[in-house]
C-alpha cells in the first residue's frame, strides 16, 4: 500500500513547497533581499558578521588595545600583517616594554580568514564593514592600522 501513501506524501510535500514560495511571492515587495547598490550607497548597511577589512579601533584619546605581541603576525598564513615594534619606557613602572610603532596590514594579500582576529588576546583588531576596497594604485591597499601618535590603552595586558 505504499503506492498510495507515496502519492499522498508526494502531493503533500509539493504543496508545502508551493506554500513556502507562495508566501515569498506575496511578501517579496517588502522583503526583497536585492540591494540596488550604487543607488542606496548612503543607506546600505552590511550585516554584523561581514568581513570587509581588518581595522583597529581607537578610543577618543587616540588609544588602541594592541600590545604588539605579534600573535597575529605569526598566525597569518600569507603574511598579511607586519608589525614594526619598538621598546619604550613604561611610564608607570619605569620598565622597558614592547610597543608597536606601525601595524602594517596588506589588504591585497588578506583572504579574510579571521585567524588574526580569533587569536588576538586583547581584541585589538576587529572586522570593519567597509566593502568598497577598489583603488587605482595597489600600494594604497597597504595600510597602517594604528593612528599616528596613538598609544596603548592603559590597563591592557596580554
Amino acid at each position: 500500500m505504499s503506492y498510495f501513501s507515496d502519492i499522498y506524501k508526494g502531493i503533500k510535500t509539493l504543496l508545502t513547497g508551493m506554500s513556502v514560495t507562495g508566501k515569498y511571492f506575496l511578501t517579496s515587495r517588502k522583503g526583497a533581499i536585492t540591494q540596488q547598490y550604487p543607488d542606496n550607497r548612503a543607506t546600505l548597511k552590511m550585516f554584523d558578521r561581514f568581513r570587509g577589512e581588518v581595522i583597529m579601533p581607537h578610543n577618543e584619546n587616540n588609544e588602541h588595545r594592541c600590545t604588539g605581541c605579534q600573535k597575529c603576525e605569526i598566525i597569518c598564513p600569507n603574511g598579511t600583517i607586519e608589525i614594526i615594534w619598538d621598546r619604550g619606557i613604561d611610564e608607570e613602572t619605569g620598565k622597558k616594554k614592547k610597543k608597536i610603532d606601525q601595524f602594517v596590514y596588506h589588504l591585497s594579500m588578506c583572504t579574510m580568514c579571521a585567524l588574526c582576529i580569533d587569536v588576538c588576546p586583547t581584541d585589538a583588531i576587529i572586522w570593519g564593514q567597509n566593502f568598497e576596497n577598489s583603488v587605482y594604485d595597489r600600494t594604497k591597499l597597504t595600510r597602517v592600522l594604528n593612528e599616528p601618535e596613538s598609544k596603548l590603552m592603559p590597563g591592557v595586558e596580554d
Binding site: 515569498y24 511571492f25 511578501t27 517579496s28 522583503g31 526583497a32 536585492t34 540596488q36
Partner: peptide, 9 residues
C-alpha cells in the same frame, strides 16, 4: 514572477 518567488526585485 521568478524574482518575486525568490525575494528578488
Amino acid at each position: 514572477v521568478a524574482a518575486w518567488f525568490q525575494l528578488r526585485i
